[in-house]
Simulated scan of single mutants.
Amino acid sequence: MARLSSRADAPVLEVRGLTVRFGAFQALADVSWQVSAGKILGIIGPNGAGKSTCFMAATNMVAHTGTLWLDGEDASARPAHDLPRAGLRRTFQQNAFFGGMTVLENMEAALLDARPSPLAEAVFLPWREARRRRTIAERARTHLLAYHVPESTHGLLPGELSYGTQRMLSIALAAAPGARAVLLDEPAAGLGGPDMIALRSLLERMRDSGLAVVLIEHHMDLVMAIADEVVVLDLGRMIARGRPAEIQADARVREAYLGRAA
C-alpha cells in the first residue's frame, strides 16, 4: 500500500484502535496515538493501566485488533521479529543482552543485523568483509560513546556494567542506525542522580537526531520536562492526550492517579 503522506510532520509510527483481550479480560480498549520524527511521546498512567500491553500490541508481540502504521505503511500483519529491521525498535523493563558477548560485540551485532553481509561477498571476498567488520567496529564504538557507554566498558560483558550503564547500553542497541521509532519501557526505573541527568540528555539527543521516541515512564518530572505530547491510560483506556501542561491541569488525570487512593 502507498505511503499516506510525505509531509515532514507525518507520523513515523501510528496506532489506531488498539484493543487487547486476555480471555474475558480487556487489557486495552480502542487506544490510538502517533509520533513523528524528532518528537517524544510520553505514555503514563497508574499501575495496571495497560501501558506495557500497549507497547506489546504496538510491536505485534501480542494478539490485538486495530492497526499499526510505520512510515505510512500498514504493518499490522508484519511478524514482531520483522519490525526491528523495518525501523521499529523497543527496550524492555528488564535489560536484555547477549550475555556471553562484550559490550562492543553486542553493539556490532545490532549494526550487522541492520545491514547483513551478503553471503557470497563474505565467502569469496574475505578482504572486503574484513574491512567492513573494521568499519562496523568503529561505528559501534562511536555510537556507544554517543549513548553514554564509556570506552572503558566496551571490552566488558554486559553483566559487569553498573545498572545505569546497562540501561544506556539497552537504549543504544535499540537506537542503532536504521531505527526510525524507538519505544522505551521505563528507562528511568532504578536510576538516580547523574544517571537520570545522562538519561535526559540521551533522550534529547535521540529527538534532536530525528528519531520518533515513545516513552513509558513513572518519573513524571522527566516526562513533563521532555515530552512533546503525553497520552494517559487508565484501566486500559486512553483518558487524556495533550501537551504536558494540559495533562497536568486535567482533572481526569488527577482522578486516575489520586482518586482511588482518597
Rank of each mutant, 00 (worst) to 15 (best):
N95V: 14
P84E: 01
G100V: 08
A110E: 04
R89L: 11
F92W: 14
R89P: 13
T91Q: 00
A110T: 12
A110G: 13
M101V: 09
D82R: 03
A80W: 05
T91K: 01
R85Q: 02
Q93A: 11
L88A: 05
G87H: 06
Q93G: 06
H81E: 15
Q93L: 10
L104D: 06
H81V: 13
R90W: 14
A86F: 00
P79T: 09
V103F: 09
F98G: 11
Q94W: 01
L83Y: 11
E108Q: 14
T102D: 00
G100Q: 14
N106S: 10
F92V: 10
D82F: 04
R89Q: 15
Q93N: 07
P84N: 00
T102V: 02
G99W: 04
F92E: 07
L104A: 14
D82Q: 10
G87Y: 10
P79Y: 02
P79D: 04
T91N: 02
L88V: 05
F97I: 03
V103T: 03
V103I: 04
M107H: 12
A109T: 15
H81K: 11
F98W: 14
N106R: 01
A110V: 08
N106I: 06
P84H: 00
G100F: 10
A110M: 08
H81Q: 15
G87M: 10
R89I: 14
N106M: 08
E105T: 06
A96V: 14
L83H: 09
M101R: 08
L83Q: 01
L88E: 06
E108I: 13
P79F: 06
A110C: 09
G99D: 15
D82H: 07
L83M: 12
R90E: 13
R89V: 15
A86W: 05
L88P: 06
L104R: 07
L104Y: 00
V103W: 10
A86K: 06
A86L: 15
F97D: 02
F97M: 03
T102W: 08
A96I: 13
F98Y: 15
A109E: 00
A96C: 12
Q93P: 01
E105K: 05
M101N: 05
G100N: 12
N106H: 12
D82Y: 02
F98H: 11
E108N: 09
L83V: 01
Q93S: 03
L104F: 04
A110N: 10
R85G: 13
A110K: 09
N95Q: 09
D82T: 00
Q93W: 12
Q93V: 10
